[in-house]
Design a protein around this nucleic acid. Structure first.
Lengths: 132, 132
DNA sequence: ATCTCAATGGACTTACCTATCCATTGTATA
DNA sequence: TATACAATGGATAGGTAAGTCCATTGAGAT
């Protein structure tokens, strides 16, 4: 059970920007350095975060990236779903076509419990929690 | 956040065997059919589960696989750690060399909380829970 | 003994995630 | 307008997980 490398990077990036001066644009180079994300791969992740409206970017001199909203408005789930769509897809862990709470596979109750814990964690924590 | 495909297969396999008649040997073919795991890949997973003492095997006519212990003696963590050693390694999600509760990275408290939830889930649930 | 069944395990292929490179586009400053 | 700076995005390579194939080994049945 783990995050993809990309998802982990995305959380690092979000943490870095949440801890940067509010409103300031931070360059990809700076983020790469402080979050220990490979520079050229970082640009791929930034694109997805921008497209998901988690970050906004500005090109050219003085440009860079910053949070698209206030840190308390961005939860971990927003960040993770921007890069790892698989947090969204609900598929049966047992491989069943039809699997629901009324017609559950053997793994269903365990799986639901765990997903609930993880989803709750991702929704309840926001980037504002990094600042304190 | 997700299991590897292999880890998911391993849980399916464990569930199938836990629900089979106690002590009976089940062939790889039967497990492959009922757990929807590709047959030739399944053999790889079975090996690891046998080596980890989660299952035991018997070759030849009438052979197959069965649980190595009573289902209540095997928790999900036993199954998962047999195939996905990464549930064991504790590495900093922020990429720090030194990261601990006394010298925590920005992600540390969030990460610890989530890992705690997951570990508790994996340890508290056993294969006996499939039978009921 | 021989035959058949079934796990074992090595070699190999495929697919996808991760990472790199670089030419292009856009923006601020002088 | 020219220049330097920085994101954009396509093309490509590397690496690990996933999946396949098959010859070998071991065990029961006749």
């Amino acid at each position: 059970m783990r995050f993809t490398q990309t998802a982990e990077y995305a959380l690092r990036i979000a943490a870095c920007l949440a801890r940067s001066p509010s409103g300031a644009f931070i360059t990809a180079q700076e983020i790469s350095d402080s979050a220990a994300v490979p520079k050229h791969y970082l640009s791929k992740i930034m694109r997805r975060l921008v497209e998901a409206d988690v970050l906004e970017s500005r090109k050219g001199h003085g440009g860079g990236f910053r949070l698209a909203r206030g840190p308390s408005e961005i939860c971990f789930h927003d960040v993770l779903s921007a890069v790892d769509y698989k947090t969204e897809t609900i598929e049966c862990a047992f491989g069943w076509e039809r699997c629901s709470s009324t017609e559950p596979c053997p793994l269903h109750p365990f799986w639901s419990k765990l997903r609930g814990d993880i989803d709750r964690w991702a929704v309840e924590n926001t980037l504002a929690d990094f600042v304190t």
